[in-house]
Simulated assay, not measured.
Amino acid sequence: MPYLNLRGVEHYYEWMKKPSGVAKPIMVFIHGWAGSARYWRSTAESLLDQFDCLLYDLRGFGRSCGKPTISQVGEAVAESKSTSAQAEALAELSYELTEYAEDLLVLLDELELQQVYINAHSMGASIATLFFNRYPQRVKKGILTCSGVFEYDEQAFAAFHKFGGYVVKFRPRWLVKIPLADQMFMARFLHRSIPKSERIAFLQDFIDADYDTALGTIFTSVSKAQAEVMPQEFAKLTVPTLLVSGEYDKIIPAQLGSQAAKLNDKVEFALIPNTAHFPMLEDPDSYLQRVQEFLRVEGVR
C-alpha cells in the first residue's frame, strides 16, 4: 500500500485512474471524522471518465493512524531542510483543523500537484474550506458534502463533548462481530439503507481510529472557536464551491448548509432529498447528477 510521510506521519493514499489518451484533471477526496478514504471509492469510480482521483486517509484515521515520533520528525525536517521553527511546529502537531489543511498542502506538494478539484465530507469539508481560503490558487473548484455553519451553545457543546468522550473510549474490537452492530452504529447517519459491507467498513474505521485523534478532533471541530471562524471562512471564499446537504441529516442539518451558502455568492447549495449524512452513498445517482451539473459549468466533461 502506498504511503507518504507528511510532517512526520505516514499517510495512506491511493490513486484511482482509468487509462486515457489525454491528461485529466485531478479530484482529491477528503473523508470525515473517524472514517477513511474507503467510503469515497464508489463516488470516485463514477467520475473516472473525467478525473484521475486521489484518495487519502487523514492523520490519525483509517490507515494513517501512526503518530509522529522524535526520529520521524527529525527525518522529515532533514529531508525538507526545515528551519528550527518548522521543526518545533512538526513536534507540536495538533488536532486543529488548520493543521489538517497544512497536511493536505504537503500531500499536494509531495505529489507535485499544482491545482486540483476537491470533494470533502463533514469534518473533511471544514478542513477543505480552510484550505480553499489559505491556498485558493491550488483549487480549481470545490465540493463540500454535508457541511455548514452553526451557533455556539455552551451547554449543548459540553454535552456533546462528554458523550463523544464516552463513545470514543468504549470501542471494543469485538464490537464489529456483534449481529446488527453495524446497523445500530450507522442508524443516526442514514435515512436510506446502504450495503452491509459499507456499514461494517464504517464501524471498523471507527474502531480503528487513534484514540487521541478521535477525541481531539471532536473538541476542535465542534467548538466555540469553530462556530465563530467558519461563518467568516465561508464569507470570504473565492473558489467556486458546491455545498451538498442531505435532507434528513441529523449530524449537520441541511439548514446549516443553506445558511453557509447564503454567506457567499461563490457557494451554490444543493439539497439531496430523502438522504441524510451520506447522500453520495444513499442516493448516488442524484448526488452525482448534481455534482456533474456543477462541474459542467466549468467545462469538465
Rank of each mutant, 00 (worst) to 15 (best):
E10S: 14
E10P: 01
W15C: 07
S20H: 11
K24N: 13
K24I: 11
F29W: 13
H31I: 08
W33P: 07
A34R: 12
A34C: 15
A34D: 04
T43D: 05
A44I: 07
G62Y: 06
A76N: 14
A76R: 13
T83R: 08
S84M: 10
E88G: 15
A89G: 09
A89M: 09
L90V: 01
S94T: 15
L97E: 05
E99C: 08
L105K: 13
L105H: 09
L107K: 01
D109T: 04
Q114I: 00
N119H: 12
A120W: 10
A120M: 04
M123T: 12
G124W: 11
I127V: 15
R134T: 10
K140F: 06
I143M: 14
E154Y: 07
A156H: 08
F157P: 00
R173I: 07
V176D: 02
K177C: 08
P179C: 09
P179Y: 11
D182W: 05
R188W: 01
H191C: 05
R192W: 00
P195S: 05
I207W: 08
Y211K: 09
A214R: 07
T217L: 13
S221C: 11
S221G: 03
K224P: 05
K224F: 02
Q232L: 13
E233M: 14
F234E: 04
F234G: 01
F234S: 01
P240H: 05
S245C: 10
D249S: 00
A254F: 10
L256P: 00
S258H: 11
Q259T: 08
L263M: 10
L263Y: 02
F269A: 09
L271N: 11
I272A: 03
Q289C: 01
V291Q: 14
E298H: 10
R301N: 15
